[in-house]
Each structure stands twice: as structure tokens, then as C-alpha cells.
Amino acid sequence: MRVLAAMSGGVDSAVAAARAVEAGHEVVGVHLALSAKPGTLRTGARGCCTVEDAHDARRAADLLGIPFYVWDFAERFTEEVVEDFVAEYAAGRTPNPCLRCNERIKFEALLDKAIALGFDAVCTGHYARLSTVDGEIELRRSADDGKDQSYVLASLTTDQLRHAMFPLGDSTKTAVRAEAAERGLGVAEKPDSHDICFIPDGDTRKFLGDRLGEHAGLLVDDETGAVLGRHAGVHGFTVGQRKGLGIDAPAPDGRPRYVLALEPVSGTVRVGAADRLAVDRIVATRPVWPSGQPLGGAQGPVECVAQVRAHGGISPAVAELVDGEVVVQLREPLKGVAPGQAVALYRTDAAAGDLVLGSATITTTG
């Protein structure tokens, strides 16, 4: 097969590309330039897609003996990821930019271009597994639970997954680093990227404030209705937030307060005790089913596992489709679940690992 290897400059994508070469595929490496001003992305080990990362990716491609290119996706990234991120916060929702990047950039824009150029698949360093059963594609958790990235891939369509390769799905991170060292890849010990790549200093509130300006509102006790303070905009908060609320007076019981809900129209931020964060019901819209079958083809309610964050936020659940929306009843309440997040649904299969049933965007909780 002709394979386009997306090479971020990290150890995972380098080893994934190496395995694709070793498997006998015709591999071409590509690094995505996601900013017109690379200095606005994180530098060093804290981010991804920087100039340094492009150099690391090129060196890995040279070692593997494969052609290498840098493709400019900066405009598309700004529109699909950065502007979406800002708009979601302005609407009082909490987006996941990494999920959106995978969905809109790596497996839409990149994959579309790859197929147009005659490639059969895009290879990435994601930790997830793909299999085909009776002609149907299946997305499953990786063998390394601590690195599993199926949550941020659960919004991919059947067709996108048919053109995807995840060579690291059966490996652990420790094994991948050891393999990189054995292959002589200079990124073997390079730290993992983290945080949001397009916010250079990590100050999300300032980043949003610079773009959205000030929209004053009130901080309100959700239980009593008492006004506790003022703020410069709901975009500076997210459900579950504890620090930086700007409330001077402690709660009557001395317990810390958390953000419980955001009301962008009125500018109200509702806060309260931690136990009021717990929700056991989620309603989500715009579902995507990796296998092409809603809820794995089941009729009626389905016993499953729901996950609301990339790492953590997991509960046994019952899910069903109601008028096109996914209604999830959690067996164990979860805290800090916010509109805008994705809920991924899994079916537990002890023999083959957790199977991704689908993903949808959370609209309300209760």
C-alpha cells in the first residue's frame, strides 16, 4: 500500500512510520505546519507542530529513508480548530481541541488530500487498535490503557477509519521508546507533548479574553441565589473549575466552591459545593458511529461504558437513541461534565478489548 505517515516530530509517529516501512508499504512522511507564525506554538517539549518538531520529523524520515514533506495546513487549522475553540467557549461550552484536530485536520483535511494524491492510508502514532470483523471496521482501546487515545478518535467515521493505520495499538509507550532507541531515532527520549499547542504561554483565560474581550457578569451561588462577585466573561470558566473564581468570601461551611454551570446569554456563572457537580444523566447530539451502526447495531437501550475525558471520567452506563439524540444514564455519577465535551461509548469485550460504539457532543447534563 501507499501510506502517508503523519510525522509530528515525536517518538510515537516516528516509530509508527518505521513500522509501516518495515511492513513493506511505500511510505511518505509529512509534517503538518499548523501556524503561519510557528513562534505562536509551544516550543521545546511542551507542545507539538513547532519548527523544532518539523526538524525532528525530517531527521527521522531521513533515517528511515523515506521522502518527507511539510504541508501548510495553517489556515485550515485556524478555521477548524482555533476559531471553533474560541466560539465554543464564548457559547459557554468546553471544547476538546485535540479531538477536533484529529477529526477535522488529520482525518479530514489530511486524509482527503492523501486520497486525492493516490495514497491508500494515513498512518499516525495514536494508541488505538483497528480490526475488521465480517467486513465491518472496529475501533478499540489500545493495549496500553495509560496511553489509550481511542477517546479522541471516536468521532471518526467508518470511511475515515478504513483509510487509517495505527501501528502502535498493541504496544506500550515503554516498548515504543525502547524500539526508537534501537532504531537510532533521535526522538527516543523526547518528552510527550501536552497542553494546547496554539496557546503559547498556557494561559487559556488570557488567550480567550484577547479574542472575545470583556463581557461582565455575575458569580452566583447556585443554591441560595446570592451574588458572590463579578467576572469579565463566562469564557474564563469551565464546569468543574475550582481555582481562579475571584470569590473573596469563603462559603458558610468553609468548603471550596466549584463552577456548576455557565449561562452565556445572561453572563451568569453558577458556583457551589463539589457534591453538586455530580451528574448521572447526559444528553448528547451529533453522534458518530465508527462501525456505521448506531450503538453497534443494537436495538433499544445498551449496556456500555461512557467516557467524558481523554483520560478518566469513566462510568458504566446505559445508552439509547431518543429522537436522534444519545441519552446516557450513568451507573456511577461523574463530576465536571460540561456541555461541549464529547462522550464516547464503549462495549466491554474481555477477549478483544473495549470496542468503541460511538461518540457524541454533550449538550445537557442532569
Rank of each mutant, 00 (worst) to 15 (best):
Leu185Ala: 06
Val327Asp: 02
Arg19Tyr: 13
Lys37His: 13
Glu75Cys: 00
Asp221Arg: 09
Leu99Arg: 02
Gly267Ser: 12
Gly246Phe: 13
Ala273Thr: 11
Glu108Asn: 10
Gly366Trp: 13
Ala360Arg: 01
Arg100Leu: 01
Arg331Phe: 03
Val239Glu: 03
Glu179Gln: 15
Ala20Gln: 09
Glu83Ser: 01
Cys123Phe: 12
Thr157Glu: 11
Leu156Val: 08
Lys206Asp: 11
Leu99Glu: 03
Val82Met: 01
Glu83Thr: 00
Gly92Tyr: 09
Ala114Gly: 13
Glu179Ile: 14
Lys37Gln: 12
Val30Gln: 08
Glu80Tyr: 03
Asp84Trp: 03
Thr361Leu: 15
Asn102Met: 05
Glu320Ala: 14
Glu303Ile: 04
Glu80Lys: 10
Arg281Pro: 00
Gly125Glu: 06
Pro301Ser: 07
Gly340Glu: 15
Leu32Lys: 01
Gly213Asp: 14
Gly233Ser: 10
Val82Glu: 08
Thr132Asn: 05
Ile105Tyr: 02
Asp323Leu: 11
Ala284Gly: 09
Ala249Arg: 14
Gly44Ala: 09
Ala90Gly: 10
Asp222Leu: 14
Lys106Phe: 08
His194Val: 04
Lys243Gln: 12
Asp349Cys: 13
Ala278Val: 05
Arg59Tyr: 09
Cys98Ile: 06
Val28Asn: 01
Gly39Thr: 12
Leu168Phe: 02
Leu330Trp: 00
Thr157Phe: 04
Ala306Gly: 07
Val326Ala: 12
Ala175Tyr: 03
Ala74Pro: 03
Leu41Glu: 06
Asp12Asn: 12
Val265Ser: 15
Ala154Glu: 08
Ile115Cys: 04
Gly92Met: 10
Thr238Gly: 07
Lys335Val: 13
Gly29Lys: 05
Leu260Gly: 02
Gly65Pro: 15
Val152Thr: 12
Gln160His: 02
Thr364Pro: 10
Gly9Arg: 07
Arg59Cys: 01
Pro316Arg: 15
Thr158Trp: 02
Pro200Cys: 00
Lys106Thr: 11
Arg183Tyr: 03
Ala338Phe: 10
Pro256Cys: 05
Val28His: 14
Ala188Arg: 07
Arg331Lys: 11
Val239Met: 11
Ala319Tyr: 01
Leu355Tyr: 00
Glu52Asp: 15
Thr40Arg: 14
Asp192Thr: 07
Lys206Phe: 06
Val28Asp: 07
Ala360Ser: 08
Leu260Val: 03
Val305Gly: 00
Arg42Ala: 04
Arg276Trp: 00
Val279Ser: 01
Val70Asp: 05
Ile362Gly: 12
Ala6Pro: 13
Val326Met: 12
Ala91Glu: 09
Ala87Lys: 06
Arg183Gly: 06
Cys197Gln: 06
Leu63Asp: 03
Val27Leu: 10
Ala188Met: 01
Val239Pro: 02
Gly146Phe: 02
Gly272Lys: 11
Asp248Arg: 15
Cys48Phe: 10
Ile137His: 00
Ala350Trp: 06
Gly324Leu: 08
Ile247Gly: 05
Arg331Leu: 08
Ile362Lys: 09
Arg162Lys: 13
Ala284Gln: 08
Pro333His: 06
Ala45Glu: 09
Lys106Val: 10
Leu4Pro: 07
Ala284Trp: 05
